[in-house]
Design a protein around this nucleic acid. Structure first.
Length: 109
DNA sequence: GTTGTGACGACTT
DNA sequence: AAAGTCGCCACAA
């Protein structure tokens, strides 16, 4: 039950295409856990490093970066996103699309 | 069991 | 734009 939820989230995050981002809420919905965005945050926090999840592709609603501007993580996430060609300014990633949420054809691999 | 906290989010002031 | 409020719920104390 709890474990499967985490795994479902990890699986979903793993499917975010390179160069794109997804919101916590969207991940939750996609993982079959609507309304549980916070759980996504928790899942990422406790995710085994071994999974090599593209955690930096997960942003908060409004394409905002969740971490404080001064935090190391914020810098890290910005760096990685920019490395994939995603523009990050003012703690925001360039709006990818409006319909990318569910519309994106996630190829569940 | 209760309380506070938190990698969230939608809404209302 | 910024700050509250409320819903969500896992977890630690």
């Amino acid at each position: 039950m709890r474990t499967d939820a985490l795994e479902a989230i990890w699986r979903t995050v793993r499917c975010i295409p390179r160069g794109q981002v997804a919101t916590y809420g969207a991940i939750a919905r996609q993982a079959g856990l609507p309304g549980r965005a916070r759980l996504v945050g928790h899942a990422l926090k406790v995710a085994p490093a071994r999974l090599r999840l593209p955690w930096y592709r997960v942003v908060a609603a409004g394409e905002r970066i969740t971490f404080p501007r001064s935090s190391r993580q914020h810098a890290e996430q910005s760096r990685r996103l920019r490395a994939e060609g995603i523009k990050v300014t003012n703690g925001r990633v360039a709006r990818r699309t409006a319909a990318d949420l569910d519309a994106i054809l996630w190829k569940p691999r």
